[in-house]
Structures are given as C-alpha cells and as structure tokens.
Design a protein around this nucleic acid. Structure first.
Lengths: 342, 342
DNA sequence: CTGAAAGCGCTAACAG
DNA sequence: CTGTTAGCGCTTTCAG
C-alpha cells in the first residue's frame, strides 16, 4: 500500500491539513515543519494521488484550441480531432473548446488573447502565424498563469514544452529525398509551390528542400517558389503557366499544409502525369491523389497526435509535471500508397 | 455540474447504494428499480466518475508484459519502453510487470499462461510466436477474465482490440516501394533476409514485398529468402557467399525485427556499399547504419507507441470501454536519414 | 430487495 | 502557525 497523507501526518504527529499545506506549497507553515514533512515524504516514499486531490477540489481543466477561422482540409481535420478528443476527455474532467480567429487581423487577436484570464481558461493551444505582437501577447498570458502551447507553426525548440509540431527544415529535407528518389535520377527542374513565403514554416521547408536536393540530387534544379496566396483561381493559372514554361519539369513539391487547390490544379493537366509529386498532410484530397498514384508521397504530421499531444502538454503544465518526452515527439511521417491504409 | 449518483438517488427517491448496485450490474435489485435507474441515467445525462469509483474501490490495474527471454536490440527497446511506462503509470494506479518466456518452449509457456489468474493479474500483453497451443491458452485466459492483447506478432484483424502492431503485408509492400525507388530503376536481383520463415510475420512481409516489387519494379528480381536463424556466425557466412554469388545484386531487404547481425555482416563487405538497403525497426544498430548512409530506409513500428497502446487497450478492456481507435492504430513509419532526428 | 453509515485520499473552510 | 470538521463521487459493509 502506498503511503497517504494520513500516514505522513501520523508519522510526524501532526494533522493532515498541515501536510496538505506543505504539499501544496501554501504559505504560513513553520519552516521547520516544512522541512520535517519533506523529509518524511522522502522517507516514506510518499506519492500524491492526483485524482483524489482533483476529486476533492472538483478540479476541472479548461483548455481552448484557438484556430484560424478560414482554412482548408487540414484545418478541418484538426478541428475534427479536437472535437473527438473533447468528448473523450470529458470523462477526464477536462473541457475543450474551440475558438476561431481571423488570421490576418493581428490587432483583434492580440486583444482577444489579452482578455483571456485564469478564471476562464487553464490553457490554450494556438495555431497562429508568427508575429511579434502575438508572441508578446502569449508571453503575457503565460505570466498571468494561462498555459500556452503553439501548434504546427513555430520552432520545436521554443520554450521547453511549448511547441507541438514537426521540424520543418527536416520535413523539407525529407521531401527532397523522396522527390529525388522517385525522379529516378532524371535531369530537370522541380516546381516548389506554397501559399505564401511569408510563413516561416514555408521558408524552413524550402531551405531544407534545397539543402538536400543540392546535396544528393544535383541533376535536379529547384525553381523559385511559386506562391498561390491560397487562391483557387490564381493557383490554377499560375500552375498552368508553370507547366508550360518548364518543359523539363521532373517534379513538384507542394509545401503548404493545405495542398488541395494545387494538387487539383495540377492533376487537371495531362502534362503533370509523369511528374514526381510530394505534398504535405493527410487529408481527403491528398489521400485521394495518393491513392490514384498522382501524388507519390505525403509528408504528414498526424493531426490526432498533434491535438492529443497539445492537450497532454497543457495538462502536464497544469499539474506541474513533465510529459513523457518520447510520446510528445511529433514524427515526420512518410505516407506512400503502400503504407497509407488503416 | 455533472449529475452524480446522489442526484440520481434524490431524483428517484432511493438510496445511493441501490443506484450503485444498478450501475455496477449487481444482482438482487427489483427489475422495476433497475429500469427506473436506467431511465433516470438517460434523463439526467449521468456519467459515472471513474476515478472516484476507483478511489473508493482502491482499484489497482495489474498488467504483465510477457516477452521473450532472448532477443536483440528491438526487444531491448521494447523492454525499456515497458519500464518507462511502468513508472509513469504508477501515478495512474497501474502496476506493470515484465515476465520472460523462452520462446521455443511452447509447453512451458502454455503451462505458465494457464496458471495466471484474475486475482494475480488483470491483463497481459504478450509477444509470442504463433501456435495453436499458445492461442488456445490465451483464449482460455480471456475466458477466465484476464484480458489479453498480442504484441507485434499477429494479425491486425484478430479480435476487436486484441492486437497491437503493424500490418506486415503492407510493411513488406512499403519496403519494396522504397527499395525499388532507391535502386533508381537499375536491373538486377534483390536479397531478402530474415531470421526464419517459420514466423508468419516474415511470410507476410515477404508476400507484400514480392507483390509490389513485381508490380512496380519489374527490373528487379527478389531472390529466395535467406534464413539466418538468428545466429551471428551463420549470418556472416551466408551473407558473404550471397554477395559473391549474385554480382547483379542491387539491394537487400532485411525483414526481421532484429536486423543487427545482418546489417553488421553486410556492412563489413565492400561489395555491399552501393546497394540499396532496407531494414526494420529503430534500434541503436539500425539507426547508426541509417546515419552512415549504409541503410537507406527503416520501416518502423514505434516501440513506445506499441507499449503505450497495449496498456491503453488493456485498461480500456478492464473498464469496459472502447479505446480511441485512431490513437491505437500503429503506423508503418518510414525513417530516412532526413526525418530520423529527434 | 433496500438503506444507513463509514471510508477511499485529499482539500477547504473555520476555529483557535 | 496548526487542528477540526465536513465533504468531493463512489463503494462497501452491515442491518433490516
């Protein structure tokens, strides 16, 4: 039987409340008593029973996922995973909500963030573009005791456990490695497409892609990045003209999380048939293009994993624990036709 | 505030004990009362608080991982993950133990299994070779109320949630796809190596490998499987002679979970330098060969994920719940030099 | 077949 | 600065 606060109290000849005070780091306990309790904890190997504590406290964890209002399939997938997890976590006295923000209205978003308070939320997981203002707002939130993790977009090394997502440099390298291998050492150029290079994620992916392409596949030449601005029409025309202008094209790397428009646009053109194509994320659209063989490989960060990991990290922060490191490492998955089932 | 058993009892004008009896399906309650309680549960949207229940019960979950006594790096990795999880789950009133079995002593193992009892263990996760006797023993264990999941080795479709591992047919296909792509459409033969083809896992992988190689890469010809019997010396000599005998060799697929001996043997031979090599699992050895570029890709089932998933499935069975399906799907991961960090 | 009372391990007032 | 008491939501005797 594991020792309880009662055992501690008995052992020390004091009341459970005092032990409790020490355990919870509350003030107003004699220094000597504090030391004695800590010693007893060591000696008896006491480990606090969190669920009992939470029961007594009627503790509820309130987390919000702050996500862009507009987006594509991948965002949709994320939201749906948040929803799923929300119902699963209800049994774990955790309440998950979703808040929508307009990505490009920095001012409003910062305002929203600065209004959030500890008596409303215990933590947020936010998917938002970089930007000094948002960054500051998040820092202030943290200081006010609202835990923060950033999703998908950001650097794996920022803060200890404050980022959930993949290393985009490595993702870009992986893309190049796959594209190069699939292109079977042919000679020619490679199209690189994204929504916008204003996003640091795209910049990292591009950098990684170039590194590996140059290093390993010198017969392939990556063209300047084409930006679609997430606009369907523009995507169509700009890709059509690119296909015309570069007859030596061997492959395409679609860097953005939302690859739908680009892949649809490409797949409409017969010229694109023989190309080696790599895109990101597992969505309805990307999967269907993988299944037909039009896309050769997907580089994926599992949406469910991202969402669960974010929740676990927030939870760990609330409980002042370290999460299990290996579980929270979001892998850069490679999805081929062959391993995409299930 | 979520309704509690107290609310139910008040609402129905009865005592909490009766509600409890119904909730736990205990006998000796008037049929009419049972119905009434169920109705109230629906109406009030009552959801049982498992941790409160477990607290009152002093419930402890006792799981054992039954693993082969002898093995290589991958087994070691599995064990270490079990250890890690064991300490993490202590806070979750779950006790994890490891039991070693001698793989090839079926009789003894069956005996061991048949001795296990509900008052000793709530569930086991077993990594054991196929075999009708073991299979029967596991079935009987299940009937006696000890929950069972099979690890790594087995079919994804056996039982509802009774298998934790990858689809080996798909894994074999994935290997072929990668090997074919890396071989850059050269012509020649491919070596396929494993411990023993007596293992159904190897048979499945081989079948998947052949399917995809024939279908997609007809210029490559897979040679008959070489069996090493897990013996270092034999592995050395048999691979050395294979490298001599097939000058048109383009690649090697090491199918077994323990790839150390085979990779080490190959890497000692200069002839093997230019080959495309695929192996399984992420271990010290395989990783180091991936890092040097000797191995081109690893096909991996994450040991940590396997272990955690097994524990979650056992836990879910004990609590009579469904686990979150997508979380328990063990992915066939592809590890390249580029995405192997972290 | 049902209820009353005590308790799981911990916390939260309220006294003192 | 410390102890007493009641209670979180559920289970478990023991009576009745």
């Amino acid at each position: 039987m594991r020792p309880t606060t009662k055992d501690l109290a008995n052992h020390l000849g004091m009341s459970r409340s005092t032990v409790d005070r020490v355990l919870n780091g509350r003030t107003g306990v004699k220094d000597k008593t504090v030391k004695a309790v800590h010693k007893a904890i060591e000696e008896l190997g006491f480990e606090r029973n969190l669920s009992a504590a939470n029961l007594a406290r009627k503790r509820v964890y309130r987390f919000a996922f702050i996500l862009p209002k507009v987006g594509g399939d991948f965002l949709h997938e994320l939201k749906s995973q948040v929803g799923l997890m929300g119902v699963a976590l209800r049994l774990d006295n955790t309440e998950i909500s979703i808040r929508q923000i307009i990505e490009n209205d920095q001012h409003k978003n910062v305002e929203h963030l600065s209004r959030i308070n500890t008596d409303e939320l215990d933590g947020i997981a936010i998917l938002a573009p970089e930007g000094p203002q948002v960054r500051d707002a998040l820092a202030r939130l943290s200081e006010r005791g609202v835990h923060v993790v950033r999703l998908i977009s950001g650097q794996p090394d920022e803060g200890e456990h404050s980022f959930v997502g993949i290393d985009n440099l490595a993702a870009g390298r992986t893309a190049a490695r796959l594209l190069g291998s699939f292109a079977q050492s042919k000679k020619g150029s490679v199209l690189v497409v994204t929504d916008t290079m204003l996003s640091p994620d795209s910049v990292s992916r591009r950098a990684g892609f170039d590194q590996t392409l140059q290093h390993r596949f010198s017969s392939l030449r990556a063209l300047p990045t084409i930006e679609t601005y997430g606009d369907k029409k523009r995507t169509d025309t700009i890709l059509a003209s690119a296909l015309m202008n570069f007859p030596d094209l061997q492959g395409v790397y679609v860097m953005s999380s939302e690859a739908g428009f680009a892949l649809d646009a490409l797949s409409k053109r017969d010229v694109a048939t023989g190309l080696s194509i790599i895109a990101h994320e597992r969505t309805q659209v990307t999967l269907s293009h993988l299944r037909t063989g039009f896309v050769d490989a997907l580089i994926v960060q599992d949406a469910g994993h991202v969402v669960r990991s974010a929740a676990r990290k927030l939870r760990a922060k609330c409980d002042n624990r370290e999460p299990v490191a290996t579980q929270e490492n979001i892998r850069i998955e490679v999805l081929l036709l062959e391993n995409s089932v299930g």
